[in-house]
Write a protein that binds this DNA or RNA. Sequence first.
DNA 1: TGTACATCAGTGAACGCGCGTTCACTGATGTAC
DNA 2: TGTACATCAGTGAACGCGCGTTCACTGATGTAC
Lengths: 207, 207
Amino acid sequence: MNDSVGPSLREAKKRENRKAFLEAGRRVFSEIGLGAATVRDIVRESGLAQGSFYNYFDSKEAVFEVIVDSVVEQIRARLRESREAAIDGPSFLIAGYQACMELTAFDPDTAALMRRNQNAFRAAFYQNQTASGLLADLVEELDGKVASGVFRPHDSAVMAETMISLGVDLIITCLDAPDEAPRRLDFLQDLFANALLADGALDGACC
Amino acid sequence: MNDSVGPSLREAKKRENRKAFLEAGRRVFSEIGLGAATVRDIVRESGLAQGSFYNYFDSKEAVFEVIVDSVVEQIRARLRESREAAIDGPSFLIAGYQACMELTAFDPDTAALMRRNQNAFRAAFYQNQTASGLLADLVEELDGKVASGVFRPHDSAVMAETMISLGVDLIITCLDAPDEAPRRLDFLQDLFANALLADGALDGACC
DNA sequence: TGTACATCAGTGAACGCGCGTTCACTGATGTAC
DNA sequence: TGTACATCAGTGAACGCGCGTTCACTGATGTAC
C-alpha cells in the first residue's frame, strides 16, 4: 500500500514524464519553431515512446500552450513586482517595459523560444487566460492612477491593450536588435507621458 | 508566326492559369487558413492539374506572399489618397486609419482573408517589401510635418512603426468587432495628437 | 510480512492517410521554309 | 498560304515519405488479505 507522504511513485513518474515532454517541446520549438515541429520530433527529443505522448497531450499545440502560459505567468509576476517598486506616474510607465526586457535578458532559453516563435507567441498571447489577467491588472492600475489624479481620465481599457501590444512589439524587436532598446523605451515613455500625465506634470511644458 | 499585337496565346494562357492559382489560393486561405491549406487544396480549387502548379509557384507560401503583396499595395494606395486629401495635422492623423477601415468594409473578400489569417498576415506584413515602402511613406510625411512646424520634433522612424503596428491592431480588432471602430479611432487620434501636435495646437490646452 | 491479483502507464511496431513532388506522355502553339 | 517540325506548358497517375494515431502486450506499481 502507498502510505508514504507525498505523491505515489506512479504520480511522481507521471509528473516527470509530463515535464520531459514539456522540456522536449521547448527545445524543439526553440530550434525549428511550432509550425515545423511534429509530435514525433517532441517524442524523439523526450526519449519516451510514441504512445506515451497521448497520455499527456493531444497535440503539439497543447504543449505549446502550456509553455506559453508559463512564460506569460513569469511576465505577469515581473510586472507586479515592478509596479510595487514604482511610485510615481512616469516611473510606472517605463518600469513595466523594462521588467519585460530584463526577463528576456536574464532567461536566454525563453528569449530563444520567443525569437523563433514570434507570431505563434503573439497569437497565443492574445488568447491566453493569464494574458487576460495581465490586461486586467493594468486596467485596474490605470484606473487607480486616474482616481488619484496622477493620470488624466482616458479610455483605460483601450489604453491597456495598446500598452500591451506595444510591449509585445518592444520585446520582439529587442530580441533581434537589443541595441534599439533604450531608444524604444524613451519613445514609449514620451508617448504615454504625453497621453496620460495630468496637465502641468510634464517637464518644461508650457505655462 | 505570332505577329499579333499583345501577348501570344501561350503567354495569355500562362497569365490566366497563374491568376487561377492565385484566386484559388485566396478562396482556400479565406476558408481554412494558410496553416491548414495544402498545395493540393489550391490545385483542386483551381481546376487545373497537380503538375501545373509547379510551373507557377514553389509552395503555398509563395502564393500567399503574392496575395498579401497585392493587399498591402491596395492599402498603400488608399493611404496615399487619404494623405493628399488631408491638409491639417489632426485630420492627417486619423484619415489614414479611416482609409484602412474602409478598405475592409468595401472589400469583404479581403476582409475575410485577413480575418482567417490574422497572424500570417501580420507576419507577412512585417517582412513585405511593399510594407516597407508604406513605412517609408509615413516617415517622410512625418518629417515633412515636423519641418513645417505642424508636428513637434520626434523619433519619426519609431513613430511610424508604432502607428502602423497600432493600425494593424485596429484593422484586426475591427474585423471581429466593427462596433469598436469609432472608440478606437478616437483613442488613436487622442494618443497621437498629444504626442505630435505642436504646443498650443490642442483644443482647450493650457495657456 | 508475504503472496496473489488488479491496475495502469509505458512501449514501439504497425496502420492508413494525405502530402509534396516527379515525369513520361499529350497536344496546342509557335516557327521555318 | 501550307506543311513539317520544334517548342513548351498541361496532365494526372504514381512514388516515396513522414505524419498522427492506435493497440496488444509488458512490466512496474498498488491493493487485498
